[in-house]
Amino acid sequence: MQAILAGAVLLVCLSTPLMGGMQYPRLRTKRLLPEPTPGAPLAVGLGSWVMWLLMFPVFRVGFTGTRDTWICVVLLVLCVLVARLMVRMTAPARLKGSRMLIAVRTLVLCCVVAGVMAPLDARVDRQPMAGMTVIYATTAAVLGLMRIVDHGYFPLVLLRTALWKVLLAVVTGYWIHHTGGTLTPDPDEATAGTLLLAVLWWSLAGLSAGCVVAVPVRLVRWLRTGPPASPAPPGVTPWPPAVGAVWTAELTHDDNTYKERPVVVLERTPDFVRVLGVTSVDKSTRRHGYLKLRLSEWEGVLTKDGWLNLEIAHIPYCDFLWRRGECPQRVWDELCGRADVRERSAKAGPAPGFTFHYRLRSAMNAHVGRDARTVRADAGNRARRAWTRQKV
């Protein structure tokens, strides 16, 4: 009974990453949720069974003759096609068109599955369910790691996921050892149940190790230069922000407050985006630094007349929320020819939102400071009015 419970826990841990994206956006009411893939567990379950049916004869027949060689080649080709289908079904939409990446991941999946099946094949040849579980565990670990890396945008949230996986691996490993099992059984002498538990545990350990390795790779770059342009923040489509597009973004101010504002994208760089912010506050007394935007020309993009701040702001990629539309061509042509579109003054200091403590907080899927729209101007920081914002 203990072995069955341990096996069930390990299977659930391996299957969880296949259910959907691992991380959620900062504002769940404002961004789309990470793309779910409800068919991924079914695809892996059926695909792993088919892969076992195709790989099993290859190990049994072998490349012993011309006829057997051709049979094995055909079976391996079919196995690669099944693996490619599983990789595509579990990959996010933005990566489905990358043929080279899909091909590399397919090759990795096939090699790992074949490497696991080779020493265990003699023990599971008479127990199809055992063979299917071995293939499923290996396939779920490889594809689950790919999904975690694909959806693990915020590094410190990814670290939390990695620590949970490591903790579960340690607990289940101790449980298996305490109940008389072993994590390194001899394939020629161990029972099928012992082999299955060992394969499940090592699959979870491999998934945990992959998460742990991915964290510093993401975190070091994030803390040095800020949130990257790729992969896309969870739930944000389309991506990346196109030049001339109008987006809603969290615009950080010098006093560490931030507010959701429409912004016009001017230029993308590897580490941030140059934008012009839109405000609804009347700026008629400061026409030299602002451009009047009339609702009649911005229908469907803005909800009221506004003013475009001609001082360029730098926004991290993680602060983009959703796309509102396109900047009218007349306004864009005017912006390209205006001499008063200017960079931030050097006397104002570095752009807000790019200090180390901001990058550290954003890696946790959080924000430094407070939301200027949810805190009353005449109240302290703890006084908040009711949440009434709705998506435009």
Rank of each mutant, 00 (worst) to 15 (best):
D305S: 05
R105Y: 04
A198P: 13
V113H: 01
R26V: 08
R160E: 03
A3Y: 10
E297N: 11
D125Y: 10
G277A: 15
A229G: 14
L53A: 01
V265R: 00
L360G: 07
M100Q: 07
M100V: 15
F56C: 01
P17V: 10
D378H: 14
T225F: 02
K30H: 05
K347G: 03
C79V: 02
L143G: 02
G193H: 13
V149A: 12
A140V: 02
V50K: 00
C13D: 07
N365W: 04
V217F: 10
A122G: 15
V217H: 08
V265Q: 01
V166K: 00
A379S: 04
D371L: 12
L197E: 11
P352Q: 10
V157N: 13
A372S: 15
A141N: 03
W387I: 11
E35C: 05
W202S: 04
R385S: 06
L101W: 14
A209M: 07
L10K: 04
S98D: 15
R382A: 15
D121K: 03
D340A: 13
Y136L: 15
T184F: 02
L204S: 07
L295Q: 09
Y317C: 09
R28W: 03
A366K: 14
Y317G: 00
P185E: 13
Q329V: 12
R88E: 09
A162Q: 07
R99K: 11
F59L: 13
L145K: 00
R28V: 12
C211E: 07
C318L: 09
P231E: 09
A190E: 12
R389H: 13
W222A: 00
W164V: 15
C327G: 09
R385W: 08
R26S: 06
V157P: 01
E260C: 09
R385F: 06
K391Y: 10
E35M: 13
L335D: 00
A377H: 12
V392M: 05
G244E: 02
V301D: 03
A141S: 14
L335P: 00
L310K: 11
R373D: 15
T161L: 03
V199G: 03
I71W: 02
T191P: 05
F63Q: 07
V212A: 13
G45P: 00
G65D: 10
G369S: 03
V73R: 13
P17M: 12
E35S: 14
T269Q: 01
L251R: 05
R261P: 00
A377L: 11
A366N: 03
C318R: 02
V80H: 04
M132Q: 06
G180D: 08
D125H: 14
L85A: 14
G7H: 09
T64A: 13
A245H: 12
R344V: 10
V281C: 00
V112C: 05
P238L: 05
R385L: 08
R330D: 08
A313C: 09
R218F: 04
T269H: 12
L251M: 03
E311N: 05
T191V: 04
V58S: 01
V77R: 05
R294W: 01
V44P: 09
P228C: 07
G193Y: 04
R147V: 13
L335W: 06
R359F: 13
